[in-house]
C-alpha cells in the first residue's frame, strides 16, 4: 500500500512565506499546481525536456518537474504569478514586450520563456542574441519559430535599460 508520510517544507513563493506538507516523491511542479494553485507553471513532457515548467529558484531557472519539493526548503521561488511591473496594466517590461511583439501564439511556453528572460536580464541587462538564445534554450516553443521571442527579449532589455537610466 502507499505510504502516507508527509514532510514539512517552508519556502517563499512569490514573496509570501509558505508552510506546506508534501510527500517525498512530490516535485515542486506537483506542489505548485496541486497545492498552491500557481497554474502558470505548465507541463509538456515527462521530465526535464520541454522546459514549460520552469520556475526561478533563488533567482535562477530550474525545471520544477525535476526539483523534489523537499529540496526547496528555505528557498525563494518565483513563478509568473509573482511578476508585477509598473508598466501598463501592471505588466513587467518583459511581459509587455512579449505581448506587443507577437512573441506568443498558444502561450503555453510563455510563462517559462518570460521567467527565463527575467533571470537573464537581471544578471545581464544588455545581452547579445546568442546569450538570449542560450538563456532560453531550455524551453521549447512549437508555434513561433522562436524569432519573435528573441526580439521581445531584446526589446524588453532595452526598455529596462531606459528605465534604469531615467
Amino acid at each position: 500500500m502507499l505510504n502516507e508520510t508527509r514532510i514539512k517544507v517552508r519556502f517563499i513563493l512569490n514573496g509570501e512565506s509558505r508552510n506546506i506538507e508534501c510527500m517525498a516523491a512530490d516535485t515542486l511542479f506537483d506542489t505548485l499546481r496541486d497545492s498552491l494553485g500557481t497554474m502558470s507553471v505548465k507541463q509538456g513532457c515527462d521530465f526535464g525536456g520541454c522546459g514549460v515548467c520552469s520556475v526561478l529558484l533563488d533567482g535562477r531557472p530550474v525545471y520544477s518537474c525535476l526539483m523534489p519539493t523537499w529540496k526547496v526548503e528555505g528557498s525563494k521561488i518565483e513563478t509568473l504569478e509573482g511578476l508585477k511591473g509598473k508598466e501598463l496594466m501592471n505588466l513587467d517590461a518583459i511581459q509587455q514586450a512579449f505581448a506587443t511583439n507577437f512573441a506568443q501564439q498558444c502561450g503555453y511556453c510563455t510563462p517559462a520563456m518570460i521567467l527565463n528572460a527575467k533571470a537573464l536580464l537581471e544578471r545581464n541587462p544588455n545581452p547579445s542574441v546568442d546569450q538570449i538564445k542560450d538563456a532560453l534554450s531550455g524551453v521549447l516553443c512549437r508555434c513561433t519559430g522562436y524569432m519573435p521571442i528573441v526580439e521581445a527579449v531584446m526589446q524588453a532589455a532595452m526598455m529596462r535599460r531606459k528605465k534604469t537610466q531615467v
Binding site: G51, P61, N116
Partner: peptide, 8 residues
C-alpha cells in the same frame, strides 16, 4: 546543457 540543468 540549458541553464535549468546547469543550475542543478
Amino acid at each position: 546543457s540549458p541553464p535549468q540543468i546547469r543550475n542543478v
